[in-house]
Simulated scan of single mutants.
Amino acid sequence: MTTEWLKATGLALGLALGEALCCTPGEIISLANADAIRHGAKQKRTIKTFDEFLALE
């Protein structure tokens, strides 16, 4: 993940250039994930406990 990828992704998601440059990488990735889910991608599981992590296959 590069600065250019983050900037291009932010712009593709409808952010202004200033917004894309001021957002943290985590915010842009969260926006990209939400956009992917909105367009039909399956939501990944959220692991909240260590026991859930150990139960993964």
Results as ranks from 00 to 15, higher is better:
residue 1 M to D: 03
residue 1 M to A: 11
residue 2 T to P: 04
residue 3 T to K: 15
residue 3 T to Y: 14
residue 3 T to F: 14
residue 3 T to E: 14
residue 4 E to A: 12
residue 4 E to T: 13
residue 4 E to C: 01
residue 4 E to N: 10
residue 5 W to L: 10
residue 5 W to M: 11
residue 5 W to R: 07
residue 6 L to P: 06
residue 6 L to I: 04
residue 6 L to A: 08
residue 6 L to W: 07
residue 7 K to L: 15
residue 7 K to D: 11
residue 7 K to C: 05
residue 8 A to Q: 15
residue 8 A to N: 15
residue 8 A to I: 12
residue 9 T to R: 07
residue 9 T to H: 00
residue 9 T to A: 10
residue 9 T to V: 13
residue 10 G to I: 00
residue 10 G to H: 00
residue 11 L to T: 11
residue 11 L to I: 14
residue 12 A to S: 13
residue 12 A to R: 12
residue 12 A to T: 04
residue 13 L to K: 05
residue 13 L to M: 07
residue 13 L to E: 03
residue 15 L to T: 06
residue 15 L to Q: 09
residue 15 L to H: 11
residue 15 L to N: 07
residue 16 A to W: 03
residue 16 A to I: 05
residue 17 L to I: 12
residue 18 G to K: 12
residue 18 G to N: 13
residue 18 G to T: 13
residue 18 G to P: 06
residue 19 E to P: 07
residue 19 E to R: 08
residue 19 E to F: 04
residue 20 A to H: 03
residue 20 A to G: 06
residue 21 L to E: 15
residue 21 L to H: 12
residue 22 C to F: 11
residue 22 C to G: 11
residue 23 C to D: 03
residue 23 C to N: 04
residue 23 C to W: 06
residue 23 C to V: 01
residue 23 C to H: 09
residue 23 C to Y: 10
residue 24 T to R: 12
residue 24 T to N: 08
residue 24 T to S: 14
residue 25 P to L: 02
residue 25 P to K: 02
residue 26 G to V: 08
residue 26 G to I: 04
residue 26 G to L: 10
residue 27 E to F: 00
residue 27 E to R: 04
residue 27 E to W: 00
residue 27 E to D: 05
residue 27 E to T: 05
residue 27 E to H: 03
residue 28 I to H: 06
residue 28 I to G: 03
residue 29 I to W: 10
residue 29 I to L: 14
residue 30 S to P: 00
residue 31 L to M: 15
residue 31 L to V: 02
residue 31 L to D: 06
residue 32 A to N: 04
residue 32 A to F: 01
residue 32 A to R: 07
residue 32 A to P: 00
residue 32 A to Y: 01
residue 33 N to E: 15
residue 33 N to T: 15
residue 34 A to T: 01
residue 34 A to L: 07
residue 34 A to D: 07
residue 34 A to G: 01
residue 35 D to G: 02
residue 35 D to Q: 14
residue 35 D to I: 00
residue 36 A to L: 03
residue 37 I to M: 03
residue 37 I to K: 06
residue 37 I to E: 11
residue 38 R to E: 08
residue 39 H to A: 13
residue 39 H to G: 09
residue 39 H to N: 15
residue 39 H to P: 02
residue 39 H to I: 09
residue 40 G to F: 02
residue 40 G to D: 01
residue 42 K to D: 09
residue 42 K to M: 09
residue 42 K to Q: 12
residue 42 K to G: 05
residue 43 Q to N: 08
residue 43 Q to G: 05
residue 43 Q to W: 01
residue 45 R to K: 14
residue 46 T to W: 03
residue 46 T to M: 06
residue 46 T to C: 04
residue 46 T to K: 10
residue 46 T to E: 10
residue 47 I to S: 02
residue 48 K to I: 05
residue 50 F to H: 09
residue 50 F to A: 07
residue 50 F to R: 11
residue 51 D to F: 10
residue 51 D to G: 08
residue 51 D to I: 08
residue 52 E to H: 04
residue 52 E to Q: 14
residue 52 E to N: 04
residue 52 E to L: 02
residue 52 E to G: 04
residue 52 E to C: 05
residue 53 F to N: 02
residue 53 F to C: 08
residue 53 F to L: 14
residue 54 L to M: 09
residue 54 L to H: 06
residue 55 A to R: 10
residue 56 L to T: 10
residue 57 E to K: 13
residue 57 E to L: 08
